[in-house]
């Protein structure tokens, strides 16, 4: 069974205090047949909801962005967070600085970009938005709730 996972060293940005998962990351297909895996990778087009019955045993979900313009991973991430997944949600692949803020909002808390990001640009990107209009998978209070207490 192939370990698809990014090596721990490839995780450039992480918003978690727990240790990196050092288990093999398996595909969704392998996960379905492998009862003891605790790290899995979702490709675009795969159904994140298939993992929901197994979230208790999963410590890491990698969501792959083969090209940054394929936005299915944003829905996958939110769906997992909405289902109560509290493990690491790692965006891997064509992860660019300009998508970091919205990825954070969708519940990603670790990033392993194919091309490492400039640290200063990351800081700027994550500090761009003073508020958020709508609810998502983070704990931001939407503007309309701020307006109405």
């Amino acid at each position: 069974m192939a370990d698809l996972g990014t090596q721990g060293a490839a995780v450039q940005i992480r918003f978690r205090d727990d240790d990196l998962v050092d288990h093999a990351v398996v595909s969704m297909e392998d996960f379905a047949e492998q009862s003891n895996a605790n790290a899995v990778r979702i490709e675009p087009g795969e159904d994140a909801r298939a993992l929901i019955p197994h979230l208790d045993q999963i410590a890491l979900v990698e969501v792959n962005f083969p090209v940054f313009g394929d936005g299915r991973g944003y829905s996958a991430a939110r769906i997992l967070r909405e289902a109560g997944f509290a493990g690491e949600l790692r965006a891997v692949g064509d992860v660019l600085v300009d998508q970091l803020a919205i990825m954070r909002r969708c519940g990603f808390d670790a990033f392993a970009p194919d091309t490492p990001l400039d640290a200063a640009d990351v800081e700027t990107a994550l500090a761009t938005w003073p508020y958020d209009y709508q609810a998502a998978a983070d704990d931001a209070v939407p503007i309309w709730n701020l307006r109405h207490g």
């Binding site: 940054f68 313009g69 944003y74 909002r105």
Partner: peptide, 14 residues
């Protein structure tokens, strides 16, 4: 308009 502005899940639709 407010809901759809910078909606994090729907910035890279098909």
């Amino acid at each position: 308009r407010q809901w759809s502005s910078f909606h994090p899940e729907f910035m890279y639709l098909p």
